[in-house]
């Protein structure tokens, strides 16, 4: 009974929180717009959305990992490795169909994710440590397979570079893929049994096990999915920037985790909504796009970003506390 009450409260809370975040984004946008009128121009908004697409794809995967009380620090390295292998393949076989290149990236990512999933579920290593170890290993492998060279724009086929610049139904392919994944995730976590099981496992692992959820299967699933998305993101990244480097995406995992946290995903498991994560990614996108626009000193950008993230996190928590207190009051009445 109390569990049900909790879930109802959480639903309300989730909605409220997203409005808070949305309000924050709108406020920030207005401030930036006042300082530089170019911000809300169609051209700049297109740039903003395109640049946020890869981040939001990764953030959605990370959301599931965080919901199961896990974390994946290896995604930056997975992204680099799969992007590099895809690029090396394209360099060797210029006639390769771009879809096949994407597939190669996804397969590499899935393998990386599955290794992590195995370590977490079967061997039982803490996700933060397992993924830290794999982060080193995958990054080392990226340098190794590439022979410490880069794959440059002229070595990639035009069809491969067109993945990121072409459009489907009038929408840029990157954004299109992000939208498809968003719709899929929205359906997956809300309407499927497995999706609900992920939340159940995250909010209370012990009782989830007792109620017959195969926790190993779920852990495998979320990490493999994360790996697959990182692989996809790796190919998109390489195609977007038309260059594959060994140090691609180094430290990007923290940006992705920050997007999730801003979006209201709790590291303690069980909480997190697809729309929230999307908003979190958009907030970071607005910061990345907007701060250079308003002529703020480059040396202040990092400090401002840190302060805004901290304020957003505290804001979320205070809102949550207030809402909970109000709910409690209501229950007494």
């Amino acid at each position: 009974m109390s569990e049900m009450m909790k879930s109802i409260n959480l639903a309300k809370l989730g909605k409220f929180r997203e409005f808070g975040l949305l309000g924050f984004i709108v406020l920030l946008s207005i401030v930036i717009q006042l300082l530089n009128p170019a911000f809300l121009s169609p051209g700049n908004l297109t740039d903003l959305i395109k640049n946020t697409a890869i981040l939001s794809i990764l953030a959605l995967g990370m959301m599931l990992v965080l919901i199961t009380r896990g974390i994946d620090l290896s995604i930056g390295a997975t992204l680099a490795l799969s992007g590099m292998i895809a690029a090396l393949t394209v360099r060797a076989y210029p006639d390769l169909h771009p879809l096949l290149a994407i597939l190669i990236g996804i397969v590499v990512g899935v393998v990386c994710g599955a290794v992590l999933g195995l370590l977490v579920s079967k061997v039982g290593i803490l996700p933060i440590i397992a993924s830290l170890g794999l982060m080193n290993a995958f990054r080392g492998m990226t340098y190794w397979v590439s022979g410490r060279e880069w794959v440059s724009a002229y070595q990639m086929s035009d069809s491969f570079k067109h993945i990121a610049t072409s459009s489907i139904l009038g929408i840029n392919t990157l954004v299109f893929i992000a939208i498809i994944i968003f719709i899929f995730f929205n359906y997956f976590v809300n309407n499927t049994v497995t999706g609900r099981q992920i939340y159940a496992l995250g909010s209370n692992p012990d009782s989830a096990k007792i109620s017959g959820i195969n926790s190993d299967r779920i852990y495998m699933l979320v990490y493999t999915l994360m790996g697959g998305l990182s692989g996809l993101a790796g190919v998109l990244w390489v195609s977007k920037f038309a260059s594959a480097q060994g140090n691609t995406g180094s430290g990007y995992e923290l940006t992705v985790i920050a997007a999730c946290i801003l979006g209201g995903v709790s590291i303690n498991g069980g909480v997190g909504k697809v729309t929230g994560v999307l908003l979190g990614a958009v907030l970071l996108g607005v910061l990345d796009n907007g701060l250079p626009l308003i002529n703020v000193s480059p040396f202040w950008q990092m400090g401002i970003e840190g302060a805004i993230i901290l304020i957003a996190v505290l804001f979320n928590t205070i809102v949550k506390k207030t809402v909970e207190r109000n709910n409690l009051l209501r229950r007494v009445i």
Binding site: A258, G306, I309, L310, V313
Partner: peptide
């Protein structure tokens, strides 16, 4: 002060903030 915040969140934010101040 905010018990429901996990250490990962807080220190991730301050990680960016402290280095940001150093740059300032």
């Amino acid at each position: 002060k905010y018990r429901e915040l996990s250490a990962v969140i807080v220190t991730l934010s301050t990680m960016i903030l402290y280095r940001g101040i150093a740059y300032m």
